[in-house]
Every structure is written in C-alpha cells, then in structure tokens.
C-alpha cells in the first residue's frame, strides 16, 4: 500500500487543463443552483462543490475506450470525460434533446455506448456493473482498458460496494474504485458510518491496492489518480483510492447542511480545492489572478448562453412518448395491451 499524499508534480499543462475543467464545473453548478432557486429545475440539484479536484483527476486520467461510471458529485470528472454543459443543462432542465430525453434527470445521465454510464440512485450499484463491463472487454480480448467508478463514505457501507469490489478483486479486473470521503452521507457523520480507523484499510481486506490522497489538493489528486489508473491499466488489478475532503454544499440544494461541524470547515479538510488550486497556479507563476478571473468570466458567459438556449428547447411530449420499456420489437405488440 502506498502513501501518495502531498507531492505536486503534475505538469503545468495537465494542471491547468484540470483546473479549467474544475472551474467550468463549478460555474456550471452555480448556474444549476440559481436555475433551481428560480424554479426552472424540477426535482433535486446535487452539487460537487469541494470535490472537483478529486473528481476531475479521475475523468482526466481516463481515455476514449475506457469506462466511467460517475456518481452524484462528479460534474468535474464527467466534463473531463467528455460530458458537456449542454447535456448537463438539458438533463436538469428536462429538454427532450438531452441524452435522457426527460425520462431521467439531473445526475442520472450518461451515454453508455460511449463508456459513460448513467448511474442509478442506489449506491454501490455501479460497481459490479463496471466490473461486468470490464469482464466483457476481457472476453473480447481487449487489454489496457480501465473502468473507474466513484462512491462516497456512505456508499462504502452498502452491500453492493462490498460485493462489487470483492468480485472485481476475485477477477483481478482493472477497476479504479474512487471513494470521496467527504465526511457526511447526507447528514450522517463518519462516526455513525463506519468503525475502521480509515476507509483505506478496506483495501487490504479486499486484496486490492490502496491509495490515499488529500482531496483538497489538485496536484496530489492528479498524481495519485494517474498512478492508480496506470496500475490498473497495466494489469495491477483493482485500485482503491480514498480522497479526504469536505462536501462544501448540502446533500442537495434543498439542504442547508447546518449539521456540518464548523471545526471541519475550518480545518485542512475543509479547504476549497478550487481556491487552493488557484493559489497554487498564481504562486507557480502559471497565471495571474486577472487571467484566472477572465477564465471564469469566459466559462460563465458560455454557460449562460447555453442555459438560455436550453430553456427554449422543447419539453418531452407525453402524447409522443412511446411508453414502452422493452426494446425487442417481437415483444412490443404483446406489451402494448
């Protein structure tokens, strides 16, 4: 088991690329929050504020042909893997043109044919699914493929987490299992969630490699995820990555998160990874605060234009909906009754 914290050795190009994705994800989520407050979004809005560094580091280390099953707080990772502000807004706003066509919403979106899986709400469920996808790739003789999926501290308590990670370990598949230990599962603190000293301890129990990382530090996240993905890709079997950070928003935008311990907010774990990255960029002389400010303005203006466009798009029409849940045409006549 390696201890990989702290070192900021990612190259300038990669760091800045990752930062720009984080920034876009942050700005997009701010837009989602205001659309929610304005009553434009039906259902919940679930944000990843504070988790962008860890999340983006997963998506950015994957490549075309890999499999990615993100979770609720992975807007940054999703965008690094190729998801767009356009499809995010379409799915949240229920546009008929979105990938889920109004049939599912918010973070339950994906394009499975492109290796970008659409999560179901039940936590841990995507772990065996990615494991099965990797098994299929192995059947087809493909090597060098990685499947990554994410979970929170709460999700590690599910049976699906246990069964999925164990099965992946038995099959020695290239699964990268990323745990964002954000200290709370909705309102439940970690001392009501698990009794082991550290979630990283689970790695040895499952017989998989374990990596820990400071989730507030983009450079560390890039480095550790880079190592974990490379290890999985080169035949090292499942990799468990545990990032320590704090969820800087409520569970959803309906939740004021008043239960979060102020001491955690003030501690190292409570740092905002986006601000930490900005300070690092400026201190390294890679960009000035003014340049960073202009990047934010640029991202905001693009997202505002996209949101305005999506708000004018058609909603799904129940009279044109096919109302069939089966795909095989041999069955559809029978089901129509």
């Amino acid at each position: 088991m390696s201890s990989d914290r702290g070192k900021e050795t990612a190259t300038r190009t990669e760091y800045l690329k990752a930062y720009r994705v984080m920034l876009t994800a942050r700005v997009l989520e701010e837009k989602l929050s205001s659309l929610y407050r304005a009553g434009h979004i039906k259902g919940g809005v679930f944000l990843g504020r504070g988790q962008e560094a860890l999340s983006v580091s997963v998506g950015i280390n994957l490549r075309k042909g890999d499999i990615y099953a993100p979770l609720i707080r992975d807007q940054a990772g999703r965008m690094a893997f190729g998801d767009t502000a356009l499809d995010t807004l379409r799915t949240y706003l229920g546009s008929q043109l979105g990938s889920m066509r109004g049939r599912d919403g918010n973070i339950h979106r994906g394009r499975p044919r492109e290796g970008y899986y659409a999560m179901i709400s039940h936590l841990g469920a995507m772990i065996p699914v990615v494991t099965g996808a990797l098994m299929a790739r192995r059947f087809r003789g493909e090597s060098g493929v990685v499947g990554a999926t994410c979970i929170g501290d709460g999700g590690t308590s599910t049976g699906a987490f246990h069964e999925g990670l164990n099965a992946a370990a038995v099959e020695k598949l290239p699964l990268v299992m990323v745990v964002a230990n954000n200290q709370y599962a909705y309102s439940t603190p970690n001392d009501r969630q698990y009794a082991c000293a550290d979630l990283l301890d689970k790695a040895i129990g499952y017989g998989v490699a374990g990596h820990e990382v400071d989730g507030t530090d983009l450079g560390a996240c890039l480095e550790v995820l880079g190592k974990a993905v490379a290890a999985a890709r080169s035949g090292g079997g499942p990799q468990l990555v545990v990032g320590r950070l704090l969820r800087l928003v409520g569970h959803g935008e309906h939740d004021d998160a008043s239960y979060v311990d102020p001491a955690l907010k003030a501690a190292h774990v409570g740092r905002d990874c986006l601000k930490v990255a900005e300070e690092f960029i400026v201190a390294s002389g890679w960009a000035t605060p003014e340049e960073i400010g202009s990047w934010r303005v640029e991202a905001k203006s693009e997202i505002d234009v996209t949101a305005a466009k999506v708000l004018r798009e058609p909603a799904p029409d129940p009279n044109e909906e096919e109302w069939t849940a089966v795909s095989d045409t041999r069955l559809q006549d029978n089901f129509a009754a």
Binding site: T131, M135, N166, A167
Partner: peptide, 27 residues
C-alpha cells in the same frame, strides 16, 4: 473460460451481467 463461478454475491452477479450486456455480451 465462459462458464464462471461467482462469489456468493447475487447483487454483483446481476450487476456484472448488466455491465457485460451494456458492452455487447449476452450473459
């Protein structure tokens, strides 16, 4: 290699089948 023992994990067995099916297999 095509008839495989699974762990005692019904959730994972079905989940694995779903993932394999998404990738074009017929488990």
């Amino acid at each position: 290699g095509r008839v495989m023992d699974a762990p005692l994990s019904e959730d994972a067995i079905v989940g694995i089948a779903i993932g394999a099916a998404i990738e074009g297999m017929r488990p």
